[in-house]
């Protein structure tokens, strides 16, 4: 794939994003100099350990960062097909485009299905609301669409369950409801922030299959956040590796999982039980990566094969960069 072509067909291009949080003991950067793009119609996975800034990045895309957090610099260029593109960061808080973006052009599935729905409204109410916010339809039509969508995400007996409250649903079922709510307006970009982390293993697989099938059917772009490289291998086309608020490596799934350039990515891979040799001890990441390599942020460098990596000049040379 030529580099030009990717750049043209990105639904999203994040450049030099930085977010600060004001805490009791001063300002901390949650993400810094984050740049990557999301190709249209593909699944991009963001991986990284807890606290690496994955959720903060995702929240920036939908402008969900609330005080004490603040986007201090950078741009997020959004290019939907339905309307003209714009920089999300520069929208004012009251810009109507912001409300078209949330839930209509883009939507999000969160990590915690148990708390992602308000306990005092029925499931139908909350799904239908997503339609009523964006489409000029009657309440009855909205409920009908909600029923259709809930059926599509695999909820049985929808006409009865639509009148139930979230606490009458299991975790997996709730996550299906949240997915239905996210997809009911057919968004161009779906952001999934660790949608399966809080679920049982068997249910995790079901939800992943559901997301993949729906993506292939609806052809929308997906930004999938996870720290499970197994999931990445199953779902993703492109992978972004994050660590401590920075991007370390970007490449296709094949490039990153088969032949990672950054020692941290290699460490991540080595720490996966399935990929390690039987009988060998599992490696912890810090034992693989020299700490010094991570402490100093290096700029992302474009490699010949299209991928980008943040490495020290020595390692870059080693990796074959001229």
């Amino acid at each position: 794939m030529g580099e030009q072509k990717i750049a043209e067909d990105n639904v999203l291009a994040i450049r030099d994003l930085a977010v600060e949080f004001k805490t009791d003991i001063g300002m901390t950067y949650a993400v810094r100099d984050v740049s990557f793009s999301v190709p249209r119609g593909k699944v991009t996975a963001v991986v990284g350990e807890s606290g690496s800034g994955k959720s903060v990045t995702a929240n920036c895309i939908m402008r969900l960062i609330q005080p004490p957090g603040k986007i201090v610099s950078g741009s997020i260029d959004f290019s939907p097909t339905r309307t003209d593109g714009y920089d999300i960061v520069s929208l004012s808080n009251k810009d109507p485009r912001l409300f078209d973006l949330r839930g209509d052009l883009m939507s999000m599935v969160f990590q915690e299905p148990m708390t992602a729905l308000s306990p005092v409204y029925t499931v139908g109410n909350q799904v239908a609301e997503a339609i009523l916010c964006h489409r000029d339809v009657s309440e009855a039509e909205a409920w009908q669409e909600a029923v259709d969508m809930l059926t599509r995400v695999g909820i049985d007996d929808v006409s009865r369950r639509i009148h139930q409250y979230p606490f009458e649903f299991s975790g997996g079922m709730r996550q299906r409801v949240v997915i239905a709510m996210a997809l009911v307006c057919n968004p161009e970009l779906l952001i999934c922030d660790e949608p399966t982390t809080a679920l049982d293993v068997t249910i995790q697989a079901e939800i992943l299959t559901l997301i993949r099938d729906l993506q292939q059917e609806l052809k929308n772009s997906v930004l999938f956040i996870t720290h499970d490289l197994g999931v990445v291998a199953q779902l993703a086309d492109q992978v972004v590796v994050m660590y401590q608020g920075r991007v370390l490596e970007i490449g296709t799934v094949r490039q990153v999982l088969k032949d990672p350039l950054h020692p941290y990515t290699r460490g991540l891979l080595a720490a996966i039980p399935g990929l390690a040799q039987k009988g060998e001890r599992l490696e912890t990441i810090s034992s693989v990566v020299g700490d010094a390599d991570l402490e100093t942020p290096y700029p992302l460098t474009q490699m010949a094969d299209g991928r980008q990596v943040s490495l020290s000049p020595d390692l870059l040379r080693e990796a074959g960069h001229e």
């Binding site: 969900l64 609330q66 839930g103 969160f110 609301e129 916010c133 709510m181």
Partner: peptide
């Protein structure tokens, strides 16, 4: 104010 269900609803585009 910052509970997940509020964030979900905000992400839905509620004014």
């Amino acid at each position: 104010l910052n509970k997940p269900y509020v964030v979900t609803a905000r992400a839905k585009g509620v004014k």
